Computed example of a mutant assay.
Amino acid sequence: MHDVLDPDSDRGRVYRSLVGHPREPVGRLAARAGLSETAVRAVLKELAAADIVTTADPDAEDASWEAAPPGQVVEALRQRDAALWTALRQTGAELERLYRFARRDTGHYGALEVVEDAARVLAVSRQLQQSARHQVRVIDVPPYSGTSDYYSEQEVLQRERMAAGVVYRAIYHGSAFDDPVSWPNMARMIEAGEQARTLDDPPMKLAIGDDELAVVTLAADDRPGVVSLLIRPSSLFQALSNVFESLWRLAVPVSATGIGTQIDARDRQILTLMASGATDDAIARRLGLGRRTVVRRVSALLAMLGATTRFQAGVQAARRGWL
């Protein structure tokens, strides 16, 4: 919900219009924000659910809307961020404690098992996916050490599990776009139905199968290769699950639409102006296009990039080399 303060996002444009023009009906809001009335109603519904805007009668066609005070909105966002980072720090501290336990001859944590054999690390990954019945959640970070054969086998397994109804949600490191093996695999899996998002610097390599097993993979300290920590249902497991969901909300969606394609010069100009903060009206004037044409192309580009805001579209376009 941070984009409510971004003047280039749909939420930001609607909220900013209400801040400057209190008790506005949807029609005038749409005109001020440069959005359709349908889009404005959807945004108002989201903002109302977060107590950022209010109205006396949300179901009335001519209902007038009011913005919550910006200071109140900023404080609510600040508290949400503080809670998120507190949870992340607590999870990091717990992981650090367990990490040290795993490397001592003494100490025990019942929900934890350490796997050091490379072959078993791969076997555990397959077991986690094969036993999942509902969903597999993954955070994938470099180094990307898998061979082409490994990725081919993983693709086959993942397609089988998705065909069986298992939902895959993956958060990829931003550098995955530059990896010659990981990126094509990621693109094919997205096309096959994987829900994917990217984050500049996720904190760990993690896989979670349903609510049964989590696997944290770390670089081995005293030799080449990796060590996996298997975490069974416990307070630590729940903390890792919460971390994934928090990062998922912060990550940028990746769309399969347009993967491997290029865009024409006009769309590139539109994306460049979007990324610079230009409104639809400003883009239309700058490029000599009709406003409806710009609105239509912006909507198509957002869908192609799997983005819900102009900021997300700019991030995805830059990562794909379109800007």
Rank of each mutant, 00 (worst) to 15 (best):
I208V: 14
I231R: 03
M189G: 03
Y168F: 15
F177R: 13
W183V: 01
I190G: 02
P184I: 01
E212P: 00
P202E: 02
P233K: 09
G193K: 09
A170R: 14
S235I: 00
A176K: 01
D178E: 14
V227A: 10
P180K: 08
S234Q: 05
A239Y: 00
R197V: 09
A163L: 11
I208S: 09
Y172V: 05
G193L: 07
A219K: 13
A207R: 11
F177C: 02
L213A: 00
N185Y: 14
E153C: 08
A163G: 12
I190C: 08
V215A: 14
Q195I: 09
R232D: 10
L218S: 04
R249V: 01
V181E: 07
R249F: 00
P202F: 04
D178P: 00
A163H: 09
G193I: 06
R223Q: 11
G165D: 10
P184W: 06
E160C: 00
V226G: 01
P224T: 05
V226D: 13
D200C: 04
A163S: 13
A239W: 02
Y172N: 07
F244H: 09
S235N: 12
S255A: 15
A256V: 01
Q158A: 12
A187Q: 13
G258K: 09
N242A: 12
V226M: 07
E212W: 02
W183Q: 10
A207Q: 11
A251C: 08
V216D: 02
L236T: 14
L199A: 09
A170K: 12
E160Q: 15
V216I: 14
V254P: 02
S234K: 05
V243M: 13
E245C: 10
A251R: 04
A176I: 13
L213V: 12
L199K: 08
A164G: 11
A164H: 08
F177I: 11
D210W: 12
I190Y: 02
V166F: 09
V216G: 03
S235F: 06
G209I: 06
Q238E: 15
G260D: 04
S246R: 13
D210F: 11
T198F: 06
P184D: 02
A163W: 09
A176H: 10
S255I: 10
L213K: 07
Q238M: 06
L250D: 05
D178C: 00
L236R: 05
P202T: 06
W183K: 10
D179N: 12
P180I: 03
Y168W: 13
L240K: 10
M204E: 04
P202C: 07
D211H: 14
M162S: 08
S255E: 03
D211S: 12
L157Q: 11
Q238I: 03
M189T: 01
K205E: 08
R249T: 08
A176F: 02
E153M: 11
R223S: 08
A214L: 04
S246G: 15
F244A: 03
A170T: 15
G260V: 07
L157S: 03
Q238N: 13
N242Q: 14
Y168D: 01
I231E: 01
K205G: 11
M204G: 00
